[in-house]
Design a protein around this nucleic acid. Sequence first.
DNA 1: CGCTCATTTGATTGTTATCAAAAGAAGTGG
DNA 2: CCACTTCTTTTGATAACAATCAAATGAGCG
Lengths: 255, 255
Amino acid sequence: MISVVQHGLRGSELLGRKFRSMRARLEPDALSALEIDEVDVLVAGSDAFVRAPKSGVLILVSGVVGEVRVLKDGRRQIVALRLPGDILAPVKGEIVVALTRARVADGASLMARLADASDAYQPLRRAWLAAGRTDQAILRDQVVRLGRMSAFERMAHIFLEAHERLAQVGLAVGVSFHLPLTQQMISDVVGLSVVHLNRTLQLLRRGGLVTARHGYVTLVDRAQLVEIASYVSRFPVAWEPCEPAARGPLQQLAG
Amino acid sequence: MISVVQHGLRGSELLGRKFRSMRARLEPDALSALEIDEVDVLVAGSDAFVRAPKSGVLILVSGVVGEVRVLKDGRRQIVALRLPGDILAPVKGEIVVALTRARVADGASLMARLADASDAYQPLRRAWLAAGRTDQAILRDQVVRLGRMSAFERMAHIFLEAHERLAQVGLAVGVSFHLPLTQQMISDVVGLSVVHLNRTLQLLRRGGLVTARHGYVTLVDRAQLVEIASYVSRFPVAWEPCEPAARGPLQQLAG
DNA sequence: CGCTCATTTGATTGTTATCAAAAGAAGTGG
DNA sequence: CCACTTCTTTTGATAACAATCAAATGAGCG
């Protein structure tokens, strides 16, 4: 299983996958010369608080980070969960928290290329905008999840979303993926208490819907999860079922 | 009291106020030649469902509309509440619902001006981007509201937000404003049942925090509301207290 | 091994939803 | 202007859901 934290992918490769899944017709080398591989900031520790990027745009290369709001009394809401290939864009009043060890790259050179108005970069600009719209849609999914879904539905939904987003950048194998977050962190995403999240997770497990252990998640019955969460895909089929190949190595991870 | 539904403001005036509150140094006539006053679509009725804009960007001139997700079993979530001066931007799976009678204008000419790369429109482009960021921040406020706030806090928060957003475009008088929505509609914004919303509203009233009647809302104790909701302003003081002038006409509305 | 952190379980409380129905407003047509 | 309908607000009673408190178990790590 390919790890979210330690995949061998370069930043440009990640972005390429992401942008291409937006139906962008990018040349093979549209991103190759970008210097987004040089990791700018290395954030370690699972709860290290890092102030917003010192300058410009940051791209998450590996690991998981959250854009977090903390209320006076300590309640936390992870407004957006950022996965490899995502742009970090916290707003005023939010902090960026590394939920796992994470590597981020400076997006300055990408931004420069986007600012270049030449025709050659037209597909790139399109893809960038499409990615932004997807980001927006995912944030709105988060609103619906928190506003009108039961704990059970929320869990089904977040698992589906995480899977799809990771699959988009090639960080999923079939219906399985690596997402090494504590239940506390996930509860701060879906707006539940840890205890209730734990119990809800058990319902999903006992229902034969998912398995989750040591940060490895498998959507055992994806179809039913989609049904439960009324899940609407945000990507044009970025993942292929590929059941046969996956079954072998997955079962040991599934626990 | 100036009405959200029937103010006499022209679209360009609304946008001007909005953009100027973004600290944009717009020339007095930066927007004047725009044809955003010609109302494109007239949506009547309080629950008329209108499919997404036929082409391009729509600007809300008067009235209130919601960008709504409807789940299979009829649960609804108003993802974003749109007030005069806002841009309508529903994503896939959402519908635009007129919550009051509303007038919308076609933003094509504004978009054309934004696309014009000449220096003259630099401040306009800046303001446009700033408005987009504010929009994003408000959406994220919505996430926190739904994810980690109690019913009481949610109500305090949404009232403060509505006030600030209306004040920004001059549709508030002091701490009072017009927002003719049914409790059902508001409950679909804050993710509560109507019944519970009604009871929570009574708590706010009895606590001497707000008055709300016939669509007229007064933040009687704004300071305390801010405290309750941990409210963070999204605008650079777009409204001035102006208590003295307001007190007269407000009290009769306050009921 | 012993420390710490994460997960799990049990018991209980508190919050919010749901159901049902009354009372109040607003609009319609006679 | 009134009877009538319909929608909204309000109230009461109850059930479902999720949070909290407390503690045990399990996993990772030096």
